[in-house]
Amino acid sequence: MSQTAYNPDPKRHPGLHVIALLETGKAVLALLAATGLEMLGPQPLRDGINALIRRFSLDPDHGTLPSLLNMISPDAVHLAAAAMLAYALLHLVEAWGLWRAKAWASWLGCVSAGIYLPFDVYAIARHPGWASWTVLGINLLVVYVLARDILKRKP
C-alpha cells in the first residue's frame, strides 16, 4: 500500500478552482452593488421603498418599510457601500488563495461557507423550493470540498 504525499499544486485541484471562481463572482457582484449605491445615492432607495408602500397599500407611518425609509441617509448608504466593499475584498482574497491552493484559503472558505448553513436550513423551512435547496446544496458541496482539502493536507 503506497501512500502519496499531498500535492498542493493548484492544477490538481479543479474543485478549488471552481470555488475560487464562485467567490470571484460574489466579489464582483458586491463591487457592482457598492458602486451602484455610491453612484445612485439614497434617493432611488427612498423612491423604491415608497413605491412598495404604495403598491401594497401599507401604512406610510408605521411598520418595517417606513422605519427603513427613515434610516436611509447619505451616511447609511456610504456605510452600506463600505461594508459591501469589505465583503468583496474578503472574497477576492479568498478566491486568490483558493486558486493558488493555499491552506489558509481552504480554512477561510470552509468557515465562511459553514456560517451560512444554518441560514440556508432556515430559508428552506420558511420558503421551501428549488432555489433554497440549490443554495443549501452548493454551500454543502463547498464545505465538503474545502474540508476534504484541509484533511488531505494533514501529514
Rank of each mutant, 00 (worst) to 15 (best):
H78V: 12
I150Y: 04
W99Y: 09
P118K: 04
L108P: 02
N70V: 00
H17F: 11
V28G: 00
T24A: 15
L29Q: 15
W130S: 05
E94I: 07
A125Q: 01
A51V: 03
V135G: 12
L69F: 06
V145Q: 13
G109A: 12
P44D: 11
M84V: 00
S132Q: 12
G97C: 08
G97K: 01
P118V: 13
I72A: 06
L92Y: 05
T24H: 15
W107N: 03
A95L: 05
N7G: 03
L141C: 14
T64K: 06
T24R: 15
P14E: 11
G137V: 09
P118Y: 06
R55W: 03
L31Q: 15
C110H: 11
W104D: 13
T64Y: 05
W96V: 02
P44F: 04
R100W: 00
T64C: 00
K11N: 12
D47G: 04
P44E: 12
H62Y: 10
R12W: 00
P8Q: 04
P60M: 08
V28K: 14
I49P: 10
G109Q: 03
R55G: 02
G25L: 15
H62E: 14
G36Q: 11
P8C: 05
L141E: 05
I115G: 07
P42V: 11
T4G: 04
L90V: 07
A34L: 02
I49E: 05
R12F: 00
K152N: 11
T134D: 00
L22N: 08
L92D: 03
A20Y: 12
Y122L: 13
A113F: 12
Y87C: 06
Y116K: 03
V28E: 13
I49T: 07
V77S: 04
R12H: 09
L98Q: 08
L58M: 15
S132Y: 02
Y144G: 14
A51E: 10
M39R: 15
L37D: 13
Y87L: 07
G36P: 08
H62S: 11
S57P: 01
H127P: 00
G41A: 11
A123E: 10
R153P: 10
A82P: 01
C110R: 07
L45V: 13
P60Y: 01
N70D: 14
H127F: 13
P14S: 02
V121Q: 08
A86H: 08
A34M: 07
A101Y: 09
A30C: 09
S67M: 04
Y122T: 07
A131W: 12
I53A: 06
G48A: 15
A82T: 12
N70F: 00
T35V: 07
V142D: 03
R153L: 06
L16H: 06
P74C: 04
S132F: 01
L40H: 11
A147T: 14
L90E: 13
L98M: 11
S67D: 12
P44N: 07
V93D: 10
P66N: 06
P8H: 05
